[in-house]
């Protein structure tokens, strides 16, 4: 064991460097002025107070709302999908889960371009509609386009944890419910649903995290004017060059995510206590 510890040490040091140093840098940037020069720095909180300005608050609010909508759609679609996958034999289930995960292997950028070719004014969907003599619709650069892109992007992260939690339910619990008089519907609501809550919580946390920090999808499907927190941060670092403000924004984003996680945990606990 000792021996093993020694082998792990270089890895540990690297991890600390790679993970910790950037965090420290970001915290440092967020409470200083002077850009990325790191010379002539002076401490300040004005990066944070700047976030309180209405235009930025509006962006954060929009990001949260869009995230919640996407996560909700994802939850409904993902749960149904995960549940139906568990109805199949083990080998078929493995295959279906593989299919669900395939998009995850493809670069987000590529997948988003695929959506563009579907949604654009002379894209596949509009071509299809025109076959029935319907007028072309504008999908691109709308909330709809961003949400559909986002949902498709994060769906696997909802399906997989829910599927895992349903699949590992002890079959004798299902039989016990039937034995005690529960029909299919009640067996689902009283046992399956309850037992899958940990998976739901994991799925919601992961998809919320992903949706709130996205910037590629809103940029491509929402257009240049479409601004979510992720885009705002990206702009600060890449085009505006205000690393200090960008860092403050990322910290606020991180705090929002952490609060989200806490709330979910709390919800999970209450769920358990309510059962007691």
């Amino acid at each position: 064991m000792k021996h093993y510890n020694k082998l792990v040490r270089p890895y540990l040091i690297w991890s600390i460097l790679i993970i910790l140093v950037p965090i420290i840098m970001i915290v440092l940037y967020s409470v200083t002025t002077g850009g990325n020069a790191l010379v002539n720095i002076s401490f300040t909180l004005k990066n944070f107070t700047k976030i309180g300005e209405p235009i930025y608050l509006e962006v954060i609010k929009k990001s949260l709302i869009l995230g919640l909508i996407s996560v909700s759609i994802c939850l409904v679609v993902g749960y149904i999908l995960a549940y139906f996958i568990t109805r199949f034999d083990d080998s078929v289930q493995d295959l279906l889960i593989l299919l669900v995960t395939i998009p995850m292997w493809i670069n987000t950028l590529l997948r988003t371009y695929a959506w563009i070719s579907l949604l654009s004014d002379n894209g596949l969907i509009n071509k299809f509609l025109s076959l029935f003599g319907l007028n072309a619709q504008t999908f691109m650069y709308t909330d709809f386009a961003v949400i559909i892109g986002l949902v498709s992007d994060i769906l696997p992260f909802m399906v997989i944890p829910i599927h895992t939690s349903i699949r590992k339910i002890d079959p004798s619990l299902i039989e016990a419910a039937q034995d005690l008089g529960a029909d299919k519907f009640h067996t689902f609501t009283k046992v399956t649903l309850k037992m899958s809550i940990p998976g739901v919580i994991n799925g919601v946390m992961m998809t919320f995290l992903l949706s709130i920090s996205t910037f590629v999808i809103p940029k491509l499907l929402g257009g240049g004017q479409y601004m979510l927190v992720g885009n705002l941060i990206e702009n600060q670092f890449i085009s505006v060059g205000n690393w200090n403000f960008g860092s403050a924004l990322s910290i606020i984003l991180t705090i929002i995510i952490l609060i989200g996680l806490r709330l979910m945990k709390r919800f999970d606990k209450e769920e358990k206590e309510e059962a007691e």
Partner: peptide, 16 residues
Amino acid sequence: SHKREVNTVFQKYALF
């Protein structure tokens, strides 16, 4: 099974 007048004590209890 949910309509039968029998109840089961499962091998590993299967409590919820």
